[in-house]
Design a protein around this nucleic acid. Structure first.
Length: 664
DNA sequence: AATCAACCCGAGAAG
DNA sequence: CGGGTTGATT
């Protein structure tokens, strides 16, 4: 057992009862979990088969696997399960979902973009994006609360649905879920909720869960939602020993259903459990921790943790309030260069912001100063059009019932099958209870379409059939190359009139092929369904390359990461805390935790900044420094300046619309 | 079916 | 300001 402190050691060696490890930021929780897995196998003789570790991101899962791999044999590794909640759910469902007809094991996992498309397609007339988002969010929280459309009506009534009746949204939910069932599609929430349903309805599945896992370790427990907690509870009820690791001060995902009371009530919910608090930090300097402790102390807390370290004292963070967002971006880029001159590698530097669009100005400045950078999150690689096109072909081949993907590719690249034809086929399929694919062949005998159009449809069906045969005969990558040619996708993108665009899209296609090759190599498989699952469960952090680039990301994406030098930008009221969280004390506390997460990512240097003017929708907004900055003891700054440099007299008036004295 | 201009409206965070 | 959609035109 490698270098654990006394308290960590106790957490590792407590194996005979349920345990909550309250692990402060940088206190070595990954080390505790991995050490515990190794301890169970090596010292306690627990078969690896009986151990399950659950995380939230692939990156965390991979990290654990890598560390455990150094000690365990490859046979042991094969039997040990280290998975994310979603991949665990998917795994279980691949084996058991046929007990929930009409789903079958070839289901496709859809992303939020697909969800929006589905809602749009189910609407009789145009629906606003905001409305679609609201519907989907409601559906998501219903699923997280384990409510499916067939639940009694009164269960839905307690949800706040604004101006419209809950019944209205329940109708959407019914239509949406019906579409998923017919097309054999699962959304992210289904991956968590359906396993619970299965374990209750299907004895084979329940027996499997019951008999197999005896030790379950959960990472980031503060981020569990009702459904995820229920899964852990299933193991608990079946006699497994639970180790929950997390930090209530880092709970930042309530908007996706995470319930902070899950971790705060662990002691009550899991009988005969104990709690261990890890407060020694191995990441940051004491100066950074001092400032971070100041901030989080402003929250109401059940577990009062105060981080300390034996690392060097280091330097206090700095705070600069710039004149404008442009100045902030330019100066941040300059500071990155200065840090680089002092010996901080670009790869050890990160810039965080509250909202995705804040990356834009930064990017412009980094490009101008020729600083290599990489954005983590935001528009994801697998959501690019050219990639989605290819994946849609693959989806259709893996799941013939997926009419969503089929509609995407039926006339792409263009092959003369227009909207009218597609609408006709969809209606035809609906009338006869056929899948869209089945409608292709049936429409011929029914003479549904003009002969010329039917010929085009036949040709397309033939293409799909041929690809299906090719799939059997080739490796994953080999097959994908063949597909790119036979569908004319690659030639299509290659021949785009805009050469820059053509190059970029082709480059992305090559990257996809590379990813497929890597996947096949790492997992020793050419299975298309497994590759598709891998893609759909891909997370923002997976895009972290080891290149020497500055990393740009939202604070949410920064969780679990660490850098020598960290910049937290946009520290203004209404930006961070976000304007939509400012009226609700609970949400403001969550914003504070978010800032706490941001600060505790830094090992050595922490730069905080804000701007007095920020452009939004092409208009200027005038802002004041964030309350979170004022919560840090003034003595805990190396440099502090909250006065904007007003060098443009025209804007003076705007600044003093609100009396500064009133504000401070 | 493809192209383009006018127009509208919006961006909170993510598996 | 800029992306996405609509509707007119070819």
């Amino acid at each position: 057992m490698i270098r654990l402190n006394k308290i960590q050691k106790k957490a590792v060696e407590t194996t005979d009862s349920h345990l909550l490890v309250m692990a402060g930021a940088g206190s070595g929780k990954t080390r505790v979990i991995t050490s515990k897995i190794i301890h169970l196998i090596k010292n306690k003789g627990v078969p690896p088969y009986a151990i399950l570790a659950i995380t939230f991101t692939n990156k965390a899962a991979d990290e654990m696997k890598t560390r455990v791999k150094e000690v365990l044999s490859s046979t042991d590794m094969r039997h040990l399960q280290v998975r994310t909640f979603h991949s665990f759910g998917a795994m279980l469902l691949r084996s058991f979902i046929s007990h929930l007809p009409p789903y079958d094991s070839r289901f496709t996992i859809i992303d939020p973009g697909d969800q929006k498309k589905i809602i749009k397609s189910l609407a009789e007339k145009a629906v606003k994006t905001a409305q679609i988002n609201f519907i989907l969010q409601l559906i998501s929280s219903w699923k997280n609360d384990f409510l499916y459309p067939d639940a009694p009506f009164k269960s839905f009534a307690m949800y706040d649905t604004g101006s419209k009746e809950p019944g209205y949204y329940r109708e959407w939910y019914k239509k949406y879920q019906d579409h998923l069932l017919k097309n054999n599609l699962l959304d992210f929430d289904d991956l968590i909720a359906l396993p619970v349903q299965l374990s209750q309805k299907n004895s084979a599945c329940n027996d499997y869960l019951k008999s197999r896992w005896r030790y379950v370790l959960v990472d980031e427990y503060q981020d569990t939602n009702t459904c995820q907690e229920k899964i852990i509870r299933l193991f608990y009820q079946n006699g497994a020993t639970i180790t929950a690791v997390g930090d209530d001060d880092q709970s930042i995902y309530s908007f996706r259903g995470a319930d902070i009371t899950n971790i705060r009530c662990f002691e009550n919910n899991y009988k005969k459990s104990s709690v261990i608090q890890l407060e020694q930090n191995y990441r940051s300097t004491q100066s950074i921790l001092d400032a971070a402790n100041d901030v989080i102390a402003h929250n109401r807390r059940k577990y009062q943790k105060k981080l300390f370290t034996r690392n060097e004292t280091g330097e206090y963070p700095s705070f600069t309030f710039y004149y404008s967002d442009r100045e902030e971006a330019a100066e941040t880029a300059l500071e990155i260069l200065k840090a680089n001159d002092r010996g901080c590698a670009f790869a050890q530097t990160a810039v965080f912001y509250r909202t995705n669009y804040q990356s834009r100005l930064l990017e412009e400045n980094l490009i101008q100063k020729k600083i290599p950078y990489q954005i983590i999150g935001g528009y994801k690689f697998f959501e690019r059009k050219e990639i989605k096109d290819i994946i849609s072909y693959l989806n259709v081949l893996a799941n013939k019932r997926d009419s969503l993907s089929l509609q995407r590719i039926i006339n792409f690249p263009p092959r003369g099958i227009g909207k009218k034809t597609v609408t006709r086929l969809i209606n035809f399929a609906a009338d006869r209870q056929l899948t869209l694919m089945q409608a292709f062949s049936q429409s011929r005998s029914c003479k549904l379409l003009p002969a010329k159009t039917q010929r085009k449809i036949d040709k397309f069906s033939e293409l799909i059939n041929k690809l299906e045969k090719d799939m059997q005969r080739h490796s994953l990558v080999g097959f994908m190359k063949l597909l790119l040619q036979k569908t004319m996708l690659f030639p299509f993108y290659q021949q785009l009139p805009d050469k820059n665009e053509a190059n970029e899209r082709c480059e992305n296609i090559f990257q996809l092929l590379e990813a497929a090759g890597e996947f096949a190599e790492n997992n020793k498989t050419n299975s298309l369904p497994q590759f598709l699952e891998h893609i759909s469960l891909h997370t923002a952090q997976d895009e972290m390359a080891q290149q020497d680039t500055v990393k740009l990301m939202t604070v949410h994406n920064a969780k679990g990461l660490e850098f020598d030098t960290v910049f937290v930008t946009g520290m203004e009221e209404n930006t961070f805390p976000h304007i939509l969280s400012i009226d609700d004390p609970d949400e403001t506390e969550e914003e504070r935790r978010l800032f706490y997460v941001a600060m505790t990512r830094a090992r050595k240097n922490l730069f905080l900044s804000g701007a007095g003017e920020r452009k939004q929708y092409g208009r200027s907004k005038y802002l004041f420094p964030s309350r979170f900055i004022r919560e840090i003891d003034r003595n805990h700054f190396k440099y502090y300046n909250d006065i904007s440099r007003i060098d443009n007299k025209e804007n003076m008036e705007d600044y003093f619309v609100i009396d500064q004295h009133e504000y401070f």
